[in-house]
Design a binder for these strands. Structure first.
Length: 304
DNA sequence: CGAATTTGACCTGG
DNA sequence: CCAGGTCAAATTCG
């Protein structure tokens, strides 16, 4: 497994000729954190479907998101620290300055737009200073929010196109949240797990505002059991998941492990009765279910 | 028929 | 000028 964020994957060992980098432990930490992120995302895709009609589903979803956000921010800080250390240690100032500039730009960026003057045009390119959180996961689509695809682009030097999504309620509720999903290349620069797991790079931009204004930030929110979109949580949408063929085996094995301990067999059966699988082509489709739920690869979990 | 997706055109920062 | 982000008409889907 190789987990790198964006541009840094093109520089696996920026200063290889110096032997081991001074931040070797940081690299290791980053790798483990990325792996943890991926596992959390997978766990989320398993747990949330199991919480259908459970009033705690919203809180659980938000907790998952919070964990992922924390992890992403920690990774960003770590990467920044790593970059700064390298820049300081390296005598070649010009080269490193360039590397730093690139990396800071491409890697996870956590900041506010600050004094960034907004263009007056509606159609504008996304500012790099906008807050974004990157996540590498084999389960790119089930994150508790409902997204509408608005574009797809072929990206230079990438085998797979990048898909652009915005919050389904972006228009009516002014939610600015967007995300991009791109399947990782399976060559050396990509990140594919040892068991041929297909990995996706998901980048979240902006915060969801399609939730009631009364919601507090993260913890301690109490959820109204039948509140649908008026619940005190950030998850406000009908949620959907697609589990592709690759995911089937790993999820099943994971659940089998769980079943030995805590997970009741009925829950397992229920989950995988509802879940069917569809092939993963260029971009994994995810769509609304047909309200019957059986037989063609899509899970629908209703409103939270 | 309305909603979601696709896709080529358009726009803009670097 | 190019790469990539967004728009919007056309198309598909439920």
């Amino acid at each position: 497994m190789k987990v790198e964020a964006k541009n840094s994957s093109r520089h696996p060992s920026p200063r290889g000729r110096h032997g081991s980098s001074p931040s070797q432990s940081q690299v290791e930490a980053l790798r483990e954190m990325a792996r943890g992120q991926s596992l959390v995302a997978q766990l989320r895709a398993v747990v949330l479907p199991a919480l259908v009609d459970d009033e705690r589903a919203g809180v659980v979803a938000q907790m998952f998101q919070s964990v992922l956000d924390c992890s992403a921010k920690a990774m960003a800080a770590l990467k920044l620290c790593q970059i700064e250390n390298q820049a300081r240690a390296d005598a070649d100032g010009v080269l490193m300055a360039d590397d730093k500039k690139r990396s800071v730009k491409k890697v996870v960026v956590v900041s506010d737009d600050g004094d960034n003057a907004k263009p007056h045009r509606q159609r504008k390119r996304r500012r790099l200073a906008d807050e974004c959180v990157t996540l590498e996961t084999p389960v790119p689509h089930y994150d508790g929010h409902q997204w509408r695809k608005y574009g797809q682009k072929v990206i230079n030097n990438a085998k797979h196109p990048r898909s652009y999504y915005r919050c389904t309620y972006g228009q009516e509720q002014g939610c600015k949240a967007t995300k991009t999903v791109q399947q990782k290349d399976d060559n050396g620069a990509g990140a594919v797990y040892e068991d041929d797991q297909v990995m996706f790079a998901v980048v979240y931009y902006g915060q969801h505002t399609c939730k009631p204004p009364s919601s507090s930030d993260t913890d301690g929110t109490v959820v109204d059991s039948d509140s649908r979109c008026s619940s005190n949580i950030s998850v406000t949408c009908t949620s959907v998941a697609v589990i592709d063929h690759h995911r089937q085996s790993s999820l099943e094995s994971s659940l089998l492990d769980m079943a030995e301990e805590d997970l009741a067999t009925e829950e397992y059966d229920q989950l995988f009765d509802v879940a069917a699988y569809e092939p993963l082509d260029s971009d994994p489709a995810w769509e609304m279910d047909d309200a019957h739920g059986h037989g063609h690869g899509i899970l629908k979990f209703g409103h939270w």
